[in-house]
Design a protein around this nucleic acid. Structure first.
Lengths: 246, 246
DNA sequence: TACAATTTGTGCGTATGTATA
DNA sequence: ATATACATACGCACAAATTGT
């Protein structure tokens, strides 16, 4: 089925067969045809439908597995990755104790409303200037003490009604994004600077004004690299730290 | 779990063939038999020497390539990865401008001497208590302005003479570690907190006392996970930030 | 408990394409 | 142009894990 995808000239469009298959599979996943947590057809079934050898299809699936898009299990099958697995829960949460131990954060929502995006915010989220956003402000506690103050922004059009529903927000928002809106956060870019706590941050975090904080600016993206959420976190590093393994 | 009664033999030692081959290759690389930058024998040659099929050997090499241990190039061969490639240069340097642009740091050595390690330092570096370390203190400039103050510690026994030679230290120390001492930094764990600049840091970085800084504590490890270097960096985030993609 | 069916994992072989020297 | 080396694609056989009968 080499003729399914043309590519007669090698110019910039050439892709090996297994990568074309990979893209086709990815499309069916990100379109929602195969939703997170469900099992996709077996290797042999997919190989026959696409008209390629099992080995070629395996290579496509293995690349998707390497990118954490699917999970493969011997004897069971291949499922689309979800965000409710433990490791995925902490994949985007890099705050831990100085000894490396991670604990579950508890979130307290301070504010939750619909508003117009600033020019900079709209540009970062990839929405038209003056578009609306849902703004969530919350404090996250670690081991019973406030540790993180967060401002969260998402496009109101793609997250319809998020300012009202659900009544109580889970502390793992990315799971909600995936379950309720079909938006899967796959990557994120973070920029970290050091700042001094202002009045509001100091009172929210229970520290003195002027205490040094980490300010983490994060842009979360989906599989296609499109912006999903912009988040600004202020972290008190009295009892915790930002952890990164490279 | 059900077969806890059984499997006394295969449980701890079983590894697929391609992974055993991978370990054998890794051993010849980390032992220095195949040094960074050199080409290793071809797939077919290695397959016959180890008595496995080419496909099995390919799978071992591809895993090593995914871990950045080797670099494979069609038509040329497979070489052991080096740290002098551009992307590798910035792999362990996450400081960039707010717009994401990265620039080459320029390093000025302030101090360079042999001394005894503290108990905590020895434990982190995995050397006996009271063992000796080479201590390097330096300031790194970005775009002409001091931006980072660093304290660097390595085991003196494994880095013999580093307190004296070479006369001038390159600003990419990891490349030196690899070239001169055969120690390749493969991974690193970083912990980041926010602090206020003290007198020494303030003067070194040209900022006011009390300015918030990022304090990055890094432990660099080789392929086997053994500690190679401990580094404490103070970063002024007036003009730069810490960047992380997840 | 045993067995069979399904699905992925491993290992082998071959042929051909493409980049490099 | 030739030889070498890796990349792609196909096929087959069997092992191991999971599930249901």
């Amino acid at each position: 089925m080499n003729d399914a995808v043309q590519a007669p000239f090698k110019a910039p469009t050439f892709q090996p067969l297994y990568r074309q298959i990979k893209d086709l599979l990815m499309e069916r996943i990100s379109s929602g045809e195969w939703s997170p947590g469900t099992f996709i057809p077996s290797e042999t079934a997919l190989a026959t439908t696409y008209g390629v050898s099992v080995g070629t299809l395996r290579k496509a699936l293995n690349e998707l597995m390497a990118e954490n898009v699917v999970v493969r299990q011997q004897g069971k099958g291949t499922s689309v990755a979800t965000h409710d697995a433990d490791h995925a829960l902490f994949r985007f949460f890099n705050i831990c104790r100085p000894d490396g131990e991670r604990s579950m954060p508890v979130s307290i929502v301070l504010e939750r409303r619909l508003r117009k995006a600033s020019a900079a915010e709209a540009a970062e989220l990839g929405i038209p200037a003056g578009g609306k956003v849902v703004h969530i402000a919350r404090v996250r506690e670690l081991e019973g003490k406030p540790a993180i103050y967060e401002d969260i922004l998402v496009c109101a059009e793609r997250f319809l009604g998020l300012e009202k529903q659900p009544e109580v927000l889970p502390n793992t928002l990315y799971h909600l994004y995936q379950q309720r809106y079909g938006m899967t956060v796959a990557h994120a870019d973070e920029r970290i600077v050091a700042i001094c706590a202002n009045d509001q941050q100091a009172t929210s975090l229970g520290v003195a004004v002027g205490t040094p904080l980490l300010q983490i600016s994060r842009l979360a993206r989906d599989y296609q690299g499109r912006p999903v959420e912009k988040r600004l976190s202020m972290v008190s590093t009295q009892a915790h730290c930002y952890s990164n393994s490279i």
